[in-house]
Simulated scan of single mutants.
Amino acid sequence: MLRGLLDRLYAAGFVLAALALVTIAGLVLVQVLGRVIDKTLLAIGQEPVGIAITSLSELGGFLFVGAVFLALAGTLRSGGHVRVTLLIHSVPPSAARMLSGVALFLALGLCSFALYSAGVQAWDSWAFNAVSFGMAKFPLWVPQTVMVVGLGLFWVALLDELVTLLRGSVPSFQQAEDGKGVQDGH
């Protein structure tokens, strides 16, 4: 039951990340089409419509950060994070498990610090009504909260993988790497 809930949470992070990227693409497409329409109207002697998305680069940046952070957990579980496996594959399996456990523990500690820091920053932005610097004033707590949610999912995924490893099972990222032929150096 818990496994299914966690898997759905990781999948939801992937879906939200994909939606953020699709939104970026859609906004850029509207901006480009707006420019094409305006240039065409000018070329035929008409007044341009002026289709433009205010602060597109800033909004796109917020959406991109959201996509990155929301995809962290699912990317870990699917073996998509960069790991240096040369050392792990050159030691006996018991030492490799220990190294993986230490790496997961350290990653969990770093993620805890990042989660706490991002949470404090989002709280401060909300408490002080901090807004972005662009022409469109976006409340900063919104993208910062998305970062916190993404880091929270990543923290849960790291803990999930560490507990799996400590119970003697093979973590998901290792299963994914083995399925891709990573253990053979491919």
Rank of each mutant, 00 (worst) to 15 (best):
F138C: 07
A114F: 02
A52T: 02
F14P: 01
Q46G: 14
G179H: 06
L21G: 14
I53Q: 01
V146Y: 08
I24P: 02
Q183V: 00
G13M: 07
A96T: 00
V148L: 11
G168R: 01
N129F: 15
F14Q: 12
L165G: 03
L87Y: 03
F64Y: 14
V49E: 09
L56M: 02
S125R: 14
V120Y: 01
V82L: 15
D38S: 11
Y10D: 08
L87V: 03
G150Y: 05
V131T: 13
S78C: 10
V30P: 08
V131Q: 12
G45D: 08
L16R: 10
L158V: 01
V102Y: 03
Y10S: 11
K137W: 09
V148Y: 07
L59W: 02
S172G: 02
I44G: 07
V84L: 03
R8V: 00
G50M: 04
S125D: 04
L86K: 10
L33A: 15
N129M: 12
S78I: 10
A114R: 07
L9F: 11
P93G: 04
T164R: 13
V142N: 12
Q31F: 13
I51H: 12
D124A: 09
L166H: 07
V49Y: 12
G168L: 06
Q175M: 09
L165K: 04
A176V: 11
D7L: 09
A25N: 05
D124C: 07
L9W: 05
I51M: 14
A18M: 15
V65R: 04
A17Y: 12
T85M: 08
F154K: 04
S169K: 11
A18T: 14
A52F: 01
V28R: 15
L29P: 03
I51L: 15
N129S: 14
P48T: 10
L6C: 05
W126H: 04
A118N: 06
V146I: 13
T40D: 12
D124W: 09
Q174R: 03
G168E: 01
A73L: 06
G134R: 12
D184N: 04
S78E: 07
P171F: 06
V65N: 07
P93F: 08
V82T: 06
R77L: 05
S100Y: 04
L153Y: 03
G79K: 06
L87F: 09
V120L: 09
K137E: 10
A127Q: 05
S112V: 00
V49C: 05
I24Y: 08
P48L: 12
R167I: 02
L108T: 00
V22Y: 15
S112E: 06
G74P: 05
H186C: 07
F62P: 09
D160I: 04
A107E: 00
G45Q: 09
E177Q: 11
Q183C: 01
L9I: 12
R35H: 13
F113Q: 11
V84D: 03
S55A: 07
G74M: 01
V120D: 00
G152E: 00
V149W: 02
A18G: 15
V65E: 02
F154R: 00
D178C: 00
A71I: 02
L19C: 14
L6M: 09
